[in-house]
Design a binder for these strands. Structure first.
Lengths: 327, 327
DNA sequence: ACGGCCTATGAAAACGTTTTCATAAGCAGC
DNA sequence: GCTGCTTATGAAAACGTTTTCATAGGCCGT
């Protein structure tokens, strides 16, 4: 039934060591290599990766742990990471935490048990704070979100600048009662909020901030309540694509379609943001670059374990559309 | 450095067999089990899954191979599959083929080398045709797309009925020059086209069909050419969410916003389809059900390898929105 | 009190590879 | 023609578990 390397060796009339070498990169004469390849074809042999990994102590696997694969930001980053892994001849294990700290812990444990080569991780704030490098026998690269300084390599957006850029843009467009709704689980949302706050102060405006679970439904509910209240803002800054979607829904439901209703500015240039009229103003993130850089950091760290911790900060790009049109 | 079961055994003063049994479900006295657990905590032991899988010949892993993870249909199905796997104590390997037959073959080979417990697969038409059960030592369940009858278990939408339903709806709304744009890589797109064709015939209308790679950019280009030509249709049926998005873009670019421009009806009730004004008419697929059913079929097959091949056909639901409003 | 039968435990085999170590053969230099 | 060096090959160890097999001890029925 299960054909192993011994069967191939027998069929080729050589030892298992020779088969292993012929399939790998060991020194084998051309004649034998050909015999072995013929035997492999004849027997339909498929190597057993568990055995290979166990013996060679090289999993050739990298783990990718993201918060929510439905968020197009993460699917885009995933593709970049997958491509890089693929090019390096590594497999990818993709895990979804749903912003749940317990599942994060579970998956981190799983990575250790898989003896992975390295991990790319977008942690919740709570987990990021407890992340200690010495607990992990593999390189751990943080993306999108960051932990305590000096802990792990990471790739993040310049979130403070991006948050401020949205405020600057809204002010320039003539808005002043600008409020912000930010995700509650990530350092990234916090930084975007800080950017929002400092820009508001700089403009001499009164900030107003709320916080919500970073998903469309909770955001929609929160915005709906906000719009129904007495302190309805003129413009809203939303800290990610899912929250932005919730806000659009709430604005629609309240009959506050723009222009003239409420101005919206958010993050992530998702495919639908230019389709909903008259287009949503967003900060576009360099998603492919984020994934690629994360893998670069990871491979660098493998090559050179003792180099100082590096943090790559990338800039977003403001895409102004109709949702923030001048009043 | 690497702490193994031997270290735990030494720390607990027992044999490795006892440690293994204490950690698994073997019969161990309460006293020893406690000692072992203490030793595990003290040593920080993490089992090596490669070794475990090698010895126990049970990968406890299921593979999921989809065409395009950016397609929200597949991300939604993935989550259902992941949940089911998680509940069954299995890990998931997620692979992305990008509708490329070569990568499909690559990943199927990978699954064999990983000795996975089973695979859930959305194959291209070309691969589906060549899929022979005897080539796979594990259960293979097809989703969304189907192969030759009697080959593998599968879960699909009633695509013929769904394609026809869109035509019926458009006819009811007063349209008659209804054309169809269908994906070129899947049996599913073919079936939807068949449904379209038979419904058109039934209504005594002249069908007009084109075919395209199932992604937004190619679809946009094709629709743009179509709308610029002499035979511009009144209404379009689009065979999946990405193609639908391309069509919306092309219609926008051509200044043919509805109502009054071109009517659009497609597949997949993606989150953005009700946001783009005045809403897109779609067939909603029971995504969670599809994933869950696929895993049910897989586990049933594991339990009972010789039962007859089963195909589960689920019905879609028409969601009528403004994009097909009566002329 | 004794034989038989469970039950908990340990020693060692087994899982399918890769890698180490030893060896034989080939070849250059004298 | 012998020595020393390189190279291809095979035998066997090793990777870290689980599982089999043997054994010792306790308990039950007689």
């Amino acid at each position: 039934m299960a054909v192993g390397i011994r069967d191939v060796a027998r069929a080729a009339g050589v030892s298992t060591a020779t088969v292993s070498r012929a399939l790998g990169k060991g020194p084998v004469s051309d004649a034998l290599r050909e015999q072995v390849e013929a035997a492999v074809r004849a027997t339909g042999y498929r190597p057993n990766l568990s055995a290979r990994r166990l013996r060679s102590q090289a999993a050739q696997t990298i783990g990718l742990i993201v918060a929510d694969i439905r968020n197009p930001f993460f699917t885009a980053v995933s593709r970049a990471v997958e491509d890089a892994a693929y090019r390096a001849g590594m497999r990818l294990i993709l895990c979804n935490t749903g912003e749940d700290a317990e599942r994060e812990a579970l998956y981190l444990r799983l990575m250790q048990e898989e003896r992975v080569t390295g991990v790319v991780f977008a942690p919740t704030r709570r987990t990021a704070e407890r992340l200690r490098p010495e607990d992990f026998p593999f390189p751990l690269v943080l993306i999108d979100r960051t932990g305590p300084p000096g802990g792990h390599d990471g790739v993040v957006l310049d979130n403070v600048a991006a948050g401020a850029a949205l405020v600057d843009h809204l002010v320039e467009q003539g808005f002043s009662r600008i409020s912000g709704l930010f995700g509650s689980t990530s350092s990234t949302a916090e930084e975007r909020r800080d950017g929002y706050l400092s820009a508001m102060r700089r403009h001499g405006l009164a900030p107003q901030v709320r916080t919500v679970l970073p998903d469309a439904e909770p955001a929609q509910g929160e915005v709906a309540r906000w719009l129904a209240g007495a302190d309805r803002p003129e413009a809203l800054v939303l800290s990610n694509g899912l929250i932005l979607m919730g806000a659009v829904r709430a604005a629609r439901a309240a009959g506050l379609a723009w222009p003239g209703g409420i101005a919206l500015a958010g993050f992530d240039n998702e495919p639908w943001t230019d389709l909903v009229e008259p287009g949503l103003t967003v900060i576009e993130q360099p998603v492919a670059e984020i994934g690629a850089q994360a893998m670069d950091l990871l491979f660098d760290r493998l090559k050179n374990p003792d180099q100082p911790v590096r943090k790559v900060v990338l800039s977003g790009r403001l895409i102004a559309r109709g949702s923030t049109a001048r009043r």
